[in-house]
């Protein structure tokens, strides 16, 4: 593939991404927005392949277009898919965005041209990884793997710990563990019988005409 072709594919994908992004902003149906976000991820995975980042493309296609979309759809099933009409005029956000974008474009004047082999970013350890990983790490042709797991093992360890922590956070916020052994309700503690489901318990409480929130409030004052 010649360089000109690469550039044409690059430009086409970037234009597609811009169209998708603007469509995400314009639509007021969140289902449409989520599907467009999935398309955005998939197209950007294509762009990563063009820019030689095959591992990144693979991850983006699996995570961004797959798992993210599933999680967003699960959330929409819980919170509804309609977005209300925007209340304010878009002038201030538009102004902020244009100023920020202008500042960033101004900053690119200092950046060395795209794709030059003698850019500073390629001068230090990158050449070392590519030339010496065969001798230092052994026969692992995929340099990304050897850098990820060996040279920068600390990084990856941190990332693994971060996603574990994120799981703990989500579970604290969302998951429903086992029912408590007893519940405080209408002034005193009740034992929860075995085999009672959470829905039964809530229904039982509501039958006694005590609103759920008063139970929670009472607990807070005691604790």
């Amino acid at each position: 593939m010649t360089e000109a072709m690469v550039q044409i594919v690059d430009v086409v994908l970037l234009v597609l991404l811009a169209i998708t992004g603007i469509a995400v902003i314009r639509t007021r149906n969140l289902f449409v927005a989520v599907m467009l976000a999935g398309i955005y991820s998939l197209v950007s995975a294509g762009l990563f392949v063009v820019m030689d980042a095959v591992d990144v493309a693979f991850t983006e296609a699996a995570v961004g277009a797959g798992i993210s979309t599933v999680l967003l759809l699960c959330t929409l099933a819980l919170v509804g898919y309609k977005e209300s009409k925007p209340q304010h005029t878009p002038i201030l956000p538009l102004f902020v965005v244009i100023v920020t974008g202008g500042a960033l474009v101004y900053g690119t004047a200092e950046i060395p041209p795209f794709g030059e082999a003698d850019n500073p970013a390629h001068q230090n350890v990158a050449a070392h990884y590519i030339h010496d990983s065969e001798d230092e790490i052994g026969h692992i042709p995929n340099v990304v793997t050897s850098v990820l797991a060996s040279y920068r093992g600390y990084d990856t360890m941190g990332e693994t710990a971060v996603i574990f922590t994120a799981m703990v956070g989500v579970l604290l916020l969302l998951s429903r563990g086992p029912l408590p052994k007893r519940v405080y309700h209408a002034g005193h503690w009740h034992k929860v019988k075995r085999g009672v489901t959470r829905e039964d318990l809530i229904a039982e409480m509501e039958d006694e005409e005590v609103h759920d929130s008063t139970v929670v409030g009472g607990e807070d004052e005691d604790g």
Binding site: M51, D52, A53, D55, V56, T59, E60, V63, G64, I67, S68, L71, L72, A121, H122, V125, A126, Y129, I130, V143, V144, V147, L148, R152, D155, T156, E159, V162, I163, A166, M167, G169, V170, L173
Partner: peptide, 22 residues
Amino acid sequence: SNPIPHVLMLTAIVVGVATLAL
């Protein structure tokens, strides 16, 4: 091409989905 940005971004994508879930 330079493998270092690829390594950093690969992990960033996975961390990104974890923070999105949060």
